[in-house]
């Protein structure tokens, strides 16, 4: 095949500078000189943009802090979240407002609110990411099938997921948890199952768009089997969408799991859990005891905002 070339007619390859790379910024490094790192160049540019983005930095710091709390709570507090606080002089601190003895105060039975907030990160940070990951995996699988095959596969799955999408996730979750009990495993599976249709719908529309492109036709013209086209050709082009979708779903899972805990559906009723703690104390706000409620509330708010800030800046960086 090397004798294909007809040197007299063609432009000298050294001169034919088709090499120029399409970069948005003229100042970007000419990639032609460092071919092996090209992919990394793109990645690096995206990473640079992420690290320059203040919302990513804020979001990442918040989430990192909570992950620290969940993994090493002992580093941040020496008090147990489950036992009432007794001071060195033997006083039992119950319903004490925030102060030097207990930074966030103590609750009705003397437990340290600060410790409960720290330890409370654990339950939500174990369940929510797992549920989100399961939902994204299942949703990606279904979405690929729907978007690639279309036809009756799409129709059947769409109809069923539409039925579930017509009810609020919280309501559906309540019904499932009433029947099957509210262990952590059931909570994870329920939330994952209820998020799957949404993910599948997002993936489906991305796959539909990809399947229109000629590289898919080209793969079919090589006689590639469907599984290959879906998993090797299309999937790598939608991983960005899956990454963003996962982050968004983590935020929603925290949202949902906290709401369920607030309604009394929690793996362990006694364990420190922000939603559950709010549920147990919020009626006391009007009596002036705000601290056992407000601190876990702020904790939930901070965590979800943090995750959403990451999702938002990831989305921006990956789209650029």
């Amino acid at each position: 095949m090397s004798d294909l070339v007809n040197p007299g007619n063609e432009v000298n390859p050294a001169n034919e500078n088709d090499d120029e790379i399409e970069v948005e910024e003229p100042e970007a490094v000419p990639v032609a000189t460092a071919p092996a790192q090209d992919r990394q160049t793109v990645r690096k540019e995206q990473r640079r943009q992420l690290l320059r983005d203040p919302s990513f930095i804020i979001g990442f710091s918040i989430v990192l802090l909570w992950i620290l709390c969940a993994v090493f709570p002992g580093l941040l507090t020496t008090r147990s979240p489950d036992v009432g606080v007794t001071l060195a002089d033997g006083t039992f601190l119950a319903r004490s407002s925030p102060g030097a003895d207990a930074w966030f105060g103590t609750d009705g039975i003397g437990r340290d609110v600060f410790s409960r907030v720290i330890y409370g990160a654990r339950s939500v940070l174990t369940t929510a990411p797992v549920a989100a990951a399961l939902a994204v995996a299942a949703g990606a699988f279904l979405g690929l099938l729907m978007g690639y095959f279309r036809g009756w596969v799409d129709e059947v799955i769409s109809r069923i997921s539409e039925a579930f999408l017509s009810l609020p996730v919280v309501l559906l979750a309540i019904m499932v948890l009433v029947v099957f009990g509210s262990s952590n495993l059931v909570i994870i599976l329920t939330v994952a199952g209820l998020f799957t249709p949404v993910v599948a719908r997002t993936v489906r529309s991305a796959v539909l768009a990809e399947a229109q492109l000629d590289y898919v036709t080209s793969a079919k013209l090589r006689g590639e089997p469907s599984w290959f086209v879906m998993s090797r050709e299309i999937l790598p082009n939608i991983t960005n969408i899956l990454v963003v979708e996962f982050t968004v779903r983590v935020a929603y899972a925290i949202f949902t799991i906290a709401t369920l805990a607030f309604l009394g559906f929690t793996g362990d009723a006694l364990r420190a859990d922000w939603g559950n703690d709010i549920a147990n104390t919020y009626t006391l706000i009007q009596a002036g005891q705000w601290w056992p409620t407000i601190f876990p509330s702020l904790a939930i708010a901070a965590l979800v905002i943090g995750v959403n800030l990451i999702a938002d800046s990831l989305d921006k960086a990956l789209k650029s």
Partner: peptide, 16 residues
């Protein structure tokens, strides 16, 4: 982004 992130019962409690 921030306000939409907070679960409704949490913003409820905070507003209350």
């Amino acid at each position: 982004l921030a306000s939409a992130s907070i679960p409704d019962f949490v913003s409820g409690v905070l507003l209350q």
